Computed example of a mutant assay.
Amino acid sequence: MTSLTDSPVRPFARAAERFPTVLWNDSADPAELRRSIELGAVGATCNPVIALTAIRNDPAYWTPRLQALAVEHPTWGESELGWEAVKELSVEAAKLLKPAFDESGGRDGRLSIQTDPRLHRDAEALVAQAVQFSKLAENIIVKIPATDTGIHAMEEAAFQGVSINATLSFTVPQAVAVGAALEHALERRREAGRPDQEFGHVVTIMGGRLDDWLKTWTAKNRILTAPGTLDWAGVAALKKAYAIFRERGFRSRILSAAFRNHLQWSELVGGDLVVSPPFDWQHRIDANGIPARDRIAEPVPTAVLDELHSLSEFRRAYDVDGLRAGEFADFGAARNTLRQFLDADAQLDALVRDVIVPPA
């Protein structure tokens, strides 16, 4: 396999030199993040699945650390101990990104930590946890789900001074609703005389998960599409959301996540936005020398978009009014992803249980 140093093109470095498109790493694992920073990463994200993987992959550190935490906090249960580990992981990753945070004036250099998915129905609890997490480090940005409940929580948390990253977000209607809510929070702060600051708000669209859902939906409905068509669905949503944000003057940035193909980076280069692929995807894009060309304004091929738009489920995700706010949580990709996040929480509890109460 080609090593990182063998690539003559270095696409991410080339993109950073020429365009405002920036790279964040889709993991808070410190060892992986250091390698991503070498490729040009200026931010990172974490969620329950990512945190569980990072803790699982380093038992030499986390087993004794969890045992020590259990001794320090003798009344804490598995969930409290597990989330303390997630917070510690996030703080260590945030330290690695502090130079980029300082250099960008707070626009980049941020570490995303996700609110507990078990709070997804409780706006007040989401706001309280977001405020708590925002105090872990100066460059923390907090993920809140882009459901109707979560968007209300985002606005209030942003008003209170929390930097926001919308997650559980797959569609143009969700992104636009979040962008508008964050604008409202900024206006509320101005009207209340609260200090102006660089929040670095980002609005994620998990493009690859939209692709995944449409593949599941078309299979369930026995619909055949031209090979490769569904691989453009997330890209189409990202391009459209980006254009709307520019038209409406939203101050938050679109973030491309949940990579399934290089189009979810290469088709967005040139835009003032964030791309957040897992490190393996960064390595593959870099090693293959995928060109860093200004393609953000280039439309999705007409034949592809026409076929996508023939699918009612794609129209729900792509049209600005395709989903009402009350439907965000019930969209197929949202339900599947929330279940995955909740399952990761349960697995983290089980991992901690095996450490603090090992079998006899």
Results as ranks from 00 to 15, higher is better:
267 E>C: 02
307 E>K: 10
131 V>Q: 11
68 A>P: 02
174 Q>D: 03
229 T>M: 07
213 W>Q: 03
213 W>P: 00
121 R>V: 10
33 L>N: 08
300 V>Q: 06
37 I>V: 14
226 A>K: 13
242 Y>C: 04
144 I>W: 01
167 T>S: 07
86 V>L: 10
317 A>D: 04
227 P>H: 02
176 V>S: 02
273 L>Q: 01
22 V>Y: 09
281 W>D: 14
324 R>T: 15
19 F>L: 06
16 A>G: 02
179 G>V: 06
267 E>L: 00
53 T>I: 10
77 G>K: 03
100 A>M: 10
1 M>D: 13
42 V>S: 13
102 D>V: 13
121 R>C: 06
285 I>L: 08
171 T>V: 08
223 I>Y: 13
27 S>H: 12
81 L>E: 10
318 Y>E: 15
144 I>L: 15
202 V>Y: 06
84 E>M: 11
151 I>C: 13
187 E>S: 06
51 A>K: 07
80 E>L: 15
349 D>K: 11
108 D>N: 15
265 W>I: 01
81 L>T: 06
224 L>A: 13
225 T>F: 03
142 V>F: 08
189 R>I: 10
76 W>Y: 14
25 N>P: 05
283 H>F: 14
53 T>D: 15
97 L>E: 01
329 A>C: 04
19 F>V: 07
136 L>W: 06
31 A>F: 12
152 H>C: 03
248 R>E: 08
210 L>W: 04
22 V>E: 10
210 L>I: 05
1 M>V: 15
139 N>C: 09
282 Q>H: 03
63 T>K: 12
109 G>D: 01
115 T>H: 04
146 A>F: 00
228 G>V: 07
37 I>L: 12
130 A>E: 12
66 L>R: 02
29 D>A: 14
287 A>P: 05
95 K>M: 13
264 Q>F: 03
224 L>I: 11
72 E>D: 09
262 H>Q: 06
91 V>P: 08
287 A>N: 09
340 Q>W: 12
181 A>D: 06
37 I>N: 12
174 Q>P: 03
65 R>E: 11
293 R>P: 01
215 K>R: 08
213 W>R: 02
294 D>L: 01
345 D>N: 12
329 A>I: 00
276 S>G: 05
161 G>T: 14
100 A>W: 09
355 V>Q: 05
183 E>R: 11
133 F>A: 11
345 D>C: 15
292 A>V: 05
96 L>V: 15
48 P>G: 13
273 L>I: 01
